[in-house]
């Protein structure tokens, strides 16, 4: 075998190596230890009615989304229309966790952007956020009828996330049990 005939193969292997290495760098899939575990319980004040509280237990028996957001977060603005759309057409209840935010700013933001949330609770000091392992906003958790976290999405959701990931899982979880 003459060496020169191996040159194309060598070049190709180098290229493939790069591409393969590229594949292993996968920033958005951060395995969450919480997936498959019960959602950490909380009882927090509602955004629009601070004297009332709301918690994970209130959602038992339903499949629902917990969306972590803040009025200071620009990416949240980007994903917001999809939440509004899902809450409107998808028939899935979405609970907002207003994270490290100011009440007035948050209320104003919802007024301007539309309010997809069945209820919004305030996590002013970010303690609940820590329990949920929140890296930053926005993050979205899919929680089943038994209060178990089934999926966690980091960063803004988009049309693809809704259609390819969330909707199928929601449909499946709603059917189950």
């Amino acid at each position: 075998m003459k060496a020169k005939f191996l040159v194309p193969l060598a070049i190709f292997l180098a290229l493939a190596g790069f591409l393969g290495y590229g594949l292993t760098l996968n920033p958005s899939v951060v395995p969450s230890p919480l997936v498959g575990k019960p959602a950490p319980a909380f009882q927090l004040a509602k955004l629009d009615a601070p004297q009332e509280t709301f918690g994970v237990d209130d959602m038992r028996g339903q499949v629902w989304l917990l969306n972590v957001w803040a009025s200071w977060c620009v990416s949240c603005r980007q994903e917001h229309p999809y939440l509004v759309e899902m809450a409107g057409t998808g028939g899935i209840p979405v609970i907002g966790l207003n994270y490290k935010d100011e009440r007035q700013a948050a209320i104003g933001w919802l007024r301007a952007q539309g309010d997809p949330y069945l209820a919004t609770v305030t996590d002013e000091d970010g303690r609940v956020g820590i329990e949920y392992g929140v890296y930053g906003t926005p993050e979205t958790f899919l929680i089943d009828k038994d209060g178990v976290i089934r999926y966690k999405h980091i960063g803004p959701i988009n049309r693809d996330t809704v259609q390819k990931v969330l909707m199928p899982m929601i449909a499946e979880l709603s059917r189950a049990g």
């Binding site: 493939a16 591409l19 393969g20 590229g22 594949l23 996968n26 920033p27 899939v29 693809d160």
Partner: peptide
């Protein structure tokens, strides 16, 4: 490159096929 992350199965399949 990270668009593969949306569906790593696809990315791996493609790469395997190419290789």
């Amino acid at each position: 490159v990270h668009a593969f992350a949306v569906d790593p199965a696809r990315g791996l399949y493609i790469l395997a096929l190419l290789v």
